[in-house]
Nucleic acid binder design. Structure first.
Length: 513
DNA sequence: TTCCGACAGTGGGGTCGCAAT
DNA sequence: ATTGCGACCCCACTATCGGAA
């Protein structure tokens, strides 16, 4: 199959807003690829992703491209082979070698193929379809229920991994794909609610209120076969299923200490201080990102779910059964603190206690629900406190994609006499804006524009106050105040406040305490 | 007919390792 | 030693489609 066939399909997907239409187009492509060796590559590409996790090529490496080819000749299999080679380049001289390989590949691509390949490599294809619609397309192509495809993909960790089974073995083959210890499962995700009371309603009135820890999500597999310690393999993966076993020996040690030979646990790791209080997220992130492990900071795992233990699959069991099995396997010191209740006031009191202990919030869980791998369902609902600040807009950036032609991303400042203009920048945000607000702010900030612009950032007179919601503050080397906003989003523009009444750096910093 | 769950898009800050300067 | 890039950790929110109610 030629690459141009995938590119043409991608254009057709992007050309319609109807999801059913997108699915039909994807299904057509997949059925044409089904018999060939390129099924996996096409499945991946049509969802906007390379098969290779890392290639060493990003937006910068694609900044200048050779003249495009006149005729389409690239094959899907050939392109994948090129990226496979690219991904293996390393060591001194690797940047030049990668650049040469990129130039060679792109010189053989037509103009359409070039821009599509660029999107594929940078992960910004923006055709309006990702993995979820590919699963639907695959289901249509092979004539099977979407649920069967989706479930197999969740258990195998990806859609690509089950495409061949779907095509060649049909429903029987898909059904045979179960949870396998040692093969990561897509993790269950949570939706969110503003209050514990609303979260409890969402899960049906009664639920487990879990402490939400501010760390790194981990899935821990132990595949002991009862034999020698050499056979006692432990696997630790992140939310995106990357193997980080070698970085977290403490977690491996805890896994080996548990009284079962094989299991799959879901939890969170984080760094604690001597008193057992959580350290800032940045410390956990730093420690977890270190390749060769044990540098100073130790992390501790806290588990909140159990998907399998000694031959027993628990994925489809209700939360109550999984919780019971978890309690039997994992001692309390390595479990997330939990309260099971239907009483709103008890849940709120527990949440206050959790926050006072320095944690991020709570996750309210429906104890009747199974473990819905990969889904962001209503069975788990997170609740985190929100802080708000009144800040001043210092500059705005032109948006892209559907925000093309609109001023989108705003630069946020607090009052600070120590700074030359009287304001110190604390971060940016593009979140929380409705289409109406985008239109309004584009006009408003063009009216406030002053000074030179690079065509991307528009500096404005610091007059517009905006109410910003944040999850908290973090240490920053990027901004002169030494702090940056975490997860900032717009609540509303405040025309009742002048810039001189905005929050100061001092009051912002108070928040961290 | 209205409601709501699922999806995709639009980007944020921080951290590391690596290669080039 | 510093700098820039790529990759990945955490993530919020709105618009839209289409099935459920």
């Amino acid at each position: 199959m030629l690459l141009i066939d995938v590119v043409t399909t991608s254009s057709a997907v992007a050309a319609t807003r109807s999801r059913k239409q997108k699915v039909a187009v994807i299904a057509d492509l997949l059925s044409r690829a089904a018999a060939g060796p390129e099924l996996e590559v096409v499945t991946s590409y049509v969802g906007g992703a390379l098969l290779q996790r890392r290639t060493g090529v990003g937006w910068r490496g694609l900044a200048s491209l050779p003249d495009p080819a006149a005729e389409a000749s690239l094959t899907v299999v050939g392109v994948d082979a090129t990226f496979e080679r690219l991904a293996r380049i390393s060591g001194p001289g690797s940047q030049a070698a990668r650049a040469a390989a990129v130039t060679q590949l792109f010189a053989a691509a037509t103009a359409d193929e070039q821009s599509w390949l660029r999107g594929l490599v940078t992960g910004e294809l923006r055709q309006g379809a990702l993995d979820a619609l590919v699963q639907e397309g695959l289901a249509v192509a092979v004539g099977l229920p979407v649920a069967a495809v989706r479930r197999a993909a969740m258990l195998a960790g990806s859609t690509v991994a089950i495409a061949r089974a779907a095509v060649e073995g049909g429903e029987t083959a898909l059904a045979a794909i179960g949870l396998e210890v040692g093969r990561p499962v897509l993790p269950m995700l949570a939706s969110s609610a503003p209050t514990v009371a609303e979260a409890l309603v969402k899960v049906g009135g009664e639920g487990a209120v879990d402490t939400k820890l501010d760390g790194i999500r981990v899935q821990v597999h132990r595949l002991g076969d009862g034999g020698s310690p050499a056979d006692d393999t432990v696997l630790v993966v992140t939310r995106s299923l990357d193997d980080i076993t070698a970085r977290l020996p403490e977690v491996v040690e805890v896994a080996r200490s548990l009284p079962a030979r094989s299991f799959v646990l879901d939890g969170e790791v984080l760094a604690l201080d001597a008193a057992g209080r959580p350290r800032p997220f940045q410390e956990t992130a730093s420690r977890t990102a270190l390749q060769d492990g044990v540098a100073g900071v130790r992390v501790t795992p806290f588990f909140f779910d159990l998907l399998h233990v000694d031959g027993r699959d628990l994925l489809d069991s209700p939360g109550t059964a999984r919780a019971a099995a978890l309690e039997a396997l994992v001692p309390a010191e390595f479990r997330v603190p939990r309260l099971v209740t239907s009483d709103v006031e008890a849940a709120e009191a527990f949440t206050r206690h959790v926050l006072a202990a320095g944690h991020e919030g709570v996750v309210v869980k429906d104890l009747a629900a199974p473990y819905a791998a990969g889904r962001r369902g209503a069975a788990w609902v997170k609740v985190k406190p929100v802080h708000t600040l009144d800040l001043v807009v210092l500059a705005v950036e032109w948006g892209s994609g559907r925000r093309q032609g609109l001023l989108s991303n705003i630069h946020l400042g607090a009052r600070d006499d120590a700074q030359p203009g009287g304001f110190v920048m604390l971060g940016k945000t593009f979140k929380g804006m409705t289409d109406e607000m985008l239109a309004w702010q584009t006009k408003r900030f063009l009216g406030l524009a002053e000074g030179p612009t690079d065509g991307y950032v528009v500096r404005v007179r610091p007059e517009q106050v905006v109410e910003i919601a944040i999850d908290g503050l973090q240490a920053s080397t990027r901004y002169p105040g030494g702090v940056a906003l975490r997860f900032a989003r717009v609540v509303r523009y405040r025309d009742d406040k002048a810039a001189g009444e905005a929050d100061t750096l001092e009051t912002v910093k108070e928040l961290s305490r």
